[in-house]
């Protein structure tokens, strides 16, 4: 179970679609190699969200719209959230490479087509059962995401892809 406070990444009351990797992590910070540093620049190029790193708390959960993380294959766009302590990202859909990078880095990433219709607001506390995909608020299921695949779950539990490889025969 992942438990956390919600941030719905919205503009004018609607989840923002097509947030690309450059909006998540501005290319002017790409030279940074220290993951801890990257936390400061999460959403560094997303209008209305640039102060997110100051407001976010360890363990928070992001809810995002369609095609989140499309664009380049930069790992920074995943790592900045990990170093900020974001526990999970629930989205309507993700860019294929973004999803792959997130899984490999051990960030919980869940797809839920109707997450925008669920009764969840920014600031709510939710719980996610990553094995079933169920999302709870006050103990009641309010949405159901596609469960993590067995492989995704194994990589997540190992910590990341490299750790997972160490555990293989």
């Amino acid at each position: 179970m992942i438990k956390g406070r919600v941030w719905k990444v919205e503009r004018d009351g609607k989840l923002i679609d097509d947030i690309d990797t450059d909006m998540i992590y501005h290319n002017k910070y790409l030279h940074i190699v220290d993951r801890k540093e990257m936390a400061k620049y999460a959403f560094s190029n997303l209008e209305g969200w640039k102060d997110f790193p100051e407001k976010a708390r360890k363990g928070d959960v992001l809810i995002v719209g369609e095609n989140f993380g499309c664009g380049s294959s930069r790992q920074h766009a995943v790592d900045c959230f990990i170093s900020l302590g974001i526990a999970a990202i629930i989205g309507k859909s993700f860019g294929a490479i973004y999803k792959r990078n997130a899984i490999n880095s051990g960030l919980a990433i869940l797809e839920c087509k109707d997450i925008d219709k669920a009764d969840i607001k920014t600031g709510d506390e939710i719980e996610i059962n990553i094995e079933t995909g169920e999302i709870f608020k006050n103990g009641v299921v309010v949405a159901k995401a596609k469960p993590m695949s067995k492989i995704q779950l194994e990589i997540y539990k190992a910590g990341n892809l490299f750790e997972y490889a160490k555990k293989m025969k």
């Binding site: 294959s73 790992q75 490479i97 792959r100 990078n101 899984i103 490999n104 880095s105 695949s149 492989i151 995704q152 990589i155 892809l161 490299f162 490889a165 293989m168």
Partner: peptide, 19 residues
């Protein structure tokens, strides 16, 4: 085509995961 993390894993294990 894949990123360097994925390819390192394939060098090491001979496999990759794929949807």
């Amino acid at each position: 085509g894949m990123g360097d993390v994925d390819i390192a894993f394939v060098f090491k294990t001979g496999k990759t995961w794929f949807e």
